[in-house]
């Protein structure tokens, strides 16, 4: 009874659970890196550090340069984080896909490994 229950679960609810967990893991990774927020604010100034333009052309250009630098800093940091997020997402996805595909094979792998182990 126990063995039947195990097989039914492993190839039924268990496999579905693995797929659900993989999807959850990917969502959590995306959320941890704030990917939607970073994409939306990719060119926004870093921590809102901006200079208000004063009177005169010089002040205007100085403010423009300052603000461009702030945006550049923001962009650089965000793009690096997005790059890191991409790598992590890829790793999580690959691991997830492997897990989903290996799951049904696992009982056979056990049998195969035992067979291989017993036969020098």
């Amino acid at each position: 009874m126990l063995a039947v229950a195990f097989v039914r679960w492993w190839y039924g609810a268990g496999w579905k659970l693995v797929q659900k967990n993989v999807r959850k893991r990917m969502e959590r990774t995306s959320a941890s890196f704030s990917i939607p927020t970073l994409m939306r604010t990719l060119f926004a100034p870093w921590k809102r550090i901006i200079t208000s333009p004063g009177a005169g052309l010089n002040a205007y250009f100085r403010a423009m340069i300052d603000n461009t630098v702030s945006r550049f800093v923001g962009f650089t940091i965000r793009i690096f984080v997005l790059f890191a997020a991409g790598i992590c997402m890829l790793a999580v996805s690959v691991a997830g896909v492997l897990q989903i595909f290996l799951w049904p094979l696992m009982p056979f792998l056990v049998v195969a490994c035992i067979a291989k182990g017993l036969m020098p």
């Binding site: 268990g14 696992m106 490994c113 035992i114 182990g117 020098p120």
Partner: peptide, 27 residues
């Protein structure tokens, strides 16, 4: 190299105990 096949038994053990742990926990 002639004794490495025993390692497969250990892998089988690892997989079997892992599967049992997951089954008990999640089912």
């Amino acid at each position: 190299s002639d004794k490495r096949h025993v390692g497969f038994l250990a892998i089988a053990g690892a997989l079997a105990t892992f599967m049992a742990a997951v089954w008990i926990r999640d089912d």
